[in-house]
Amino acid sequence: MTMEFTCKEAVPMIGAYLDGELSPARAALLRPHLLECPACRNAAADGRSLQRWFAPLRESAESGELAVAVPSGFSARVARRAFAGDRGVRGEWAERSAPAREEGRILPFVLRLTAVAAAAALLLALGVQLASRPQSANLSADDRAALPLLQIQTELDRLNGVVPSPAAPAAEESAETRSQRGKKRAQPGR
């Protein structure tokens, strides 16, 4: 282990390194340390093991047991309510127990007939939206160009002397596949 750069500094950076989110300058600090430190290489291997727990979760939520079915007609219903001035259930949740909430769905409909209530809600909504606008829009990711994940994993494999993990084949995927799927998922709609 280099004296200048300790494990204590290295370990918290490994996740970002595997995510391809470490700036080139910081990656340049970490890489030589990984070359020298088997313990930190193990930590990097752990990071990849962890990713294998999440890939099946994504897949299962997309097409498996954990997929959540969207009720039919949901989008039409929501659009209709939005254009009728319905602003959501909000305050209802506080007062109602779960079993009573079914009947409570009528309340917004009644409320929206009241012009005064609508005007008050508009004012409230304006206040809320001003208060809750994202504050971090100006953050820059310029220095996070980072290495492509595939390159990082190849490099780690090399450092580790490449022993393919005994992990589930289903959960195993290349960084390339992962990034392609990421792009695919980015296309909205189902």
Binding site: C37, N42, W53, L57, S60, L66, A168
Partner: peptide
């Protein structure tokens, strides 16, 4: 923060995808 503190296992190869998903 110490690299030596235990290892994280990868999912067992015998587990089904949905089973791993449930555990996660």
């Amino acid at each position: 923060s110490q690299p030596t503190s235990g290892r994280i296992p990868a999912p067992d190869a015998r587990l089904e995808r949905d089973e791993i998903a449930r555990i996660t």
